[in-house]
Amino acid sequence: MLNSSRLRIIGRRLLQAIPVVVLSTFIVFGLLKLVPGDVAVTLAGDNASDQRIAEIRELYGLNQPFFLQYGSWLWKAAHGDLSSSLISNEAVLTSIQRCLPHTLLIVALALFTAMLIGIPLGIAAATKPGSWIDGFVMAIASLGVAVPNFWLGMLLVAFFSLQLNWLPATGAVSLMKDPWASLSHAILPAVALASGGIAEVARQLRSSLVEILSSQQVRTLHAKGLPPSAILWRHGLKNVSVNLLTVVSLLANRMLAATVVVEAVFAIPGMGGLIVNGAMNRDFPVVQGVVFTMVLIVVTLNLLTDILYSVLDPRISS
C-alpha cells in the first residue's frame, strides 16, 4: 500500500497545505483590519476607560507595524495561546475546548446520516434512471438543497419534541458524561443539518453510478452473463466509492458552516454560539479563535481526503 512513491505524494500534499494554512492565518488576523475607526477604541466598547483602551492596544500590539502584530499573534497561536475573551476574560482556547465537542458530535452524526440515507437513495435512482423512483429521489435532492437547515430544525422540534415528546428540544449533554442522553440531544440537530448532505450524496452517487453502469465495460459484463446485482456491487459501487470521499470532505466544510445556525435553534453551547456572541459583542479574540479552529479542521480534513484518495486510487500513484 505505502511504497515510496505514495509517500512522496503524501509529502507533497503536506507541503502544498502549508501556504494555505499560512494564508488562512493571515486572513483571520486581517479581519481585525476591517474594524472601522480606531480598533482599540471600537473593541473596548462604549464608555471604556482609557486604561482599557490601552490594554487592548497592548494585547494586539497595535502600536507596532502590521507584520510585527501578525507575527506575534501567529507565534502565540502556534503555541496554543489564542489570548482571552474581551468580555469574560476566559482563555479562548478553554472556551473552544468546551464548545468544540458539541459541534463535532453533531457534524459527525449529520455526516453519518447523510451517508445512511443518501447512499441508498442514490443507488435506487441510478439503477433505474428515468423511473419514478429516480424522479422522486431527484425531487428530494432539490428540496434538500433549498430548505433552510434551521427552519427544518424548527419543524423537527415542533413535531418530535412538542407534539410527540420523543426527543428533547434544546440543550446538549457531553458524550463522556451520558452517551445516551448526549445522542438523544444530538439526533434532531444532526438530521436538520444533514438535509443538504443527503441531497448532495444522492446526487453525486447517482450521476457517477449512471455513468459507470452505461459504460462499455459494464455492457461487456452484462454480455458475459453476470447478474445485475453483482455488476452493481462489485463493479459499480467499488468504482464510485472513491468519488464519495470528495463529497464527504466538501460536506464537512458546509456542515461546519451550517451548524452555526442549527446550534442556535437547538440552544446548543457549541462553536456556533461562541462565534455569534463574539461577533455581536465585538469580542474579537473569540471570533478569531473560532474561525482559526474551523479553518484548521477543514484544511486537515481536505489533506486527509487527498491522502486517502491517493492511497485508494491506484491511478494516482505515478
Partner: peptide
C-alpha cells in the same frame, strides 16, 4: 493560493466574522 485559502473557510462562519468586524 489565496482563492484556495478563502475556500477553506466555512462560508457563513467567515461571513459572521467579517460582520463582527464591520459592524452588525
Amino acid at each position: 493560493r489565496v482563492i484556495d485559502s478563502f475556500l477553506s473557510f466555512p462560508a457563513i462562519v467567515l461571513a459572521i466574522a467579517v460582520t463582527g468586524a464591520l459592524g452588525i
